[in-house]
Amino acid sequence: DSQLAPGVSMGELDRIAQNIIKSHLETCQYTAEELQQLAWQTHSYEEVKMYQSKSREVLWQQCAIQITHAIQYVVEFAKRITGFMELCQNDQILLLKSGCLEVVLVRMCRAFNPLNNTVLFEGKYGGMQMFKALGCDDLVSAVFDFAKSLCSLQLTEEEIALFSAAVLISTDRPWLMEPRKVQKLQEKIYFALQHIMQKNHMDEDALAKLIGRIPTLAALCTLHTEELQAFQQLHPETVNVLFPPLYKELFN
């Protein structure tokens, strides 16, 4: 239980890390084994053509449903993190509202195959071309690029767990009521992540590289909001009537 810094012991970091890793394993939507089994199940040529022939509204709705489903698992991830539930309700809502999509994007790298640039979507893997009908090629290709770059860091499940938590419990969100409390927790998570990454990676800069991806995560979320606003201008009834209520609450 030696002290690493004032008020932080190795024992406490380990408890925080184990709690976060457990939460991640319980709420990650697909286990590593399930993903392994699905690995080379790709959508067929006919299935991809079927996605491409959908109307823009229908595919947007399908994607909104999948994103919302993933977000529900992220909410549960947060709820099982002891430190997160000790924050005030205002900050819990704020952190989830602003960070849930970023966490989904981090988690996405688990379900991304960098060997053929495919992502797990509705039960099988498919490439970017599957999403053509959305009409936001820039966003889709940026998301795929991000997933590929995250995969190249070869993060373990533990590292993905801790990095997801660090992205969620972020002091960069405006209007936090207790920013110092959030900062203390985030620092401990990064300490724990650093400790684990030093053991697992030859590259001393692995953590710095990972932190360096955070601006891209924020940019992807901004781009998503912009695309949604543009889509809603053209198809307000689709969004109002057919999109999941949680998706509208978070992004509208």
Binding site: V75, E76, Q89, Q92, I93, L96, L246, E249, L250
Partner: peptide, 17 residues
């Protein structure tokens, strides 16, 4: 914030699913 995020607030309040 709670008023504008009823669903999120409810998810946070509900017992673990």
């Amino acid at each position: 914030l709670k008023e504008k995020h009823k669903i999120l607030h409810r998810l946070l309040q509900n017992s673990t699913s």
